[in-house]
């Protein structure tokens, strides 16, 4: 019961997270999916983040374009602006920004919801009424996040590219059809697919970390706040780690 050693506590938490992780796959393998709850969760995730994803995606597209314009102009390469901006938006900025929004909004929501269910014995009540709470709460939420984050990323891509179109048009004049033509000349499946793939993992990480922190909640109401908070911090951190690994992997497999 000695928990004073921070290194030991960190290692123990990592081990717990790993076991939590394994249990997810065991439950999936057992294959009793709660579809109604899954649809509910997908709706909540979309409903809670859509507006934020639209706004930030639009602003990011606009701002990146405006700020890239001077350096492109210095090389006399203004006509390249749409294709350069679109690659960085689709490959990096939109997936990461969307994942961060979801980490803040969904990760904390899941952490707080499951945490408060835990401290008010609702999870025990589920178990007593013969429902596997892991299957009902965790599997549905994680799968919902894995489904919705990529979807939001695709949606965010479209909005951000439209923002970039407006950004391009602030300094020069491009028709929408020329702009889209330029983008699709440059963007290939090897840009889009890795970005979608990594957003699956973002979704997985956000969902499972939120649930893990929720399930680990202790110390009553105060613990609920701490669970929500640490879910956001950890999910954000893991999103960047996954991003780093994804960038390395797509480089190694030279999907450039």
């Amino acid at each position: 019961m000695i928990k004073s050693n921070p290194v030991r506590a960190l290692l123990e938490e990592t081990a717990d997270l790993f076991l939590f992780f394994l249990r997810f796959f065991q439950e999936i393998k057992r294959g009793k999916m709660e579809w109604a709850e899954w649809i509910n969760q997908c709706f909540y995730i979309g409903n809670r983040t859509l507006l934020l994803v639209i706004t930030t995606g639009f602003i990011m597209g606009l701002v990146i374009t405006i700020q890239s314009h001077p350096s492109m102009a210095a090389f006399g390469a203004e006509s390249w602006l749409p294709s350069v901006v679109s690659v960085s938006l689709v490959r990096e900025i939109v997936p990461v920004i969307t994942a961060l929004i979801c980490a803040g909004k969904i990760g904390s929501g899941i952490g707080a919801e499951i945490g408060s269910m835990k401290v008010t014995e609702q999870i025990d009540a589920m178990e007593v009424s013969g429902t596997n709470p892991y299957n009902y709460l965790v599997v549905t939420r994680v799968l919902a996040a894995m489904f919705m984050v990529p979807l939001l990323v695709v949606f965010g891509d479209a909005i951000a590219l439209y923002g970039a179109f407006l950004g391009v048009n602030m300094k020069q004049s491009v028709t929408f059809s020329l702009y889209t033509h330029q983008i699709f000349m440059k963007l290939t499946y090897s840009d889009v697919i890795p970005s979608i793939l990594k957003s699956f993992f973002f979704g997985f990480a956000i969902g499972i970390i939120g649930c893990f922190k929720g399930f680990a909640t202790r110390n009553g109401t105060q613990g609920v706040g701490a669970a929500a908070n640490s879910a956001v911090v950890m999910a954000t951190f893991v999103v960047f780690i996954i991003d780093l690994v994804a960038a390395q992997l797509s480089d190694i497999f030279s999907i450039t």
Binding site: T120, Q122, M126, G130, T131
Partner: peptide, 27 residues
């Protein structure tokens, strides 16, 4: 075996009806 929790443990995101139906739908 029915279990009555000290904190009641009602599912607070569900109505009374859904709370009562929960065990029924399971079993």
């Amino acid at each position: 075996v029915g279990f009555l929790f000290q904190s009641n443990a009602l599912y607070d995101s569900m109505t009374v009806r859904e709370n009562l139906e929960f065990p029924l739908r399971r079993h």
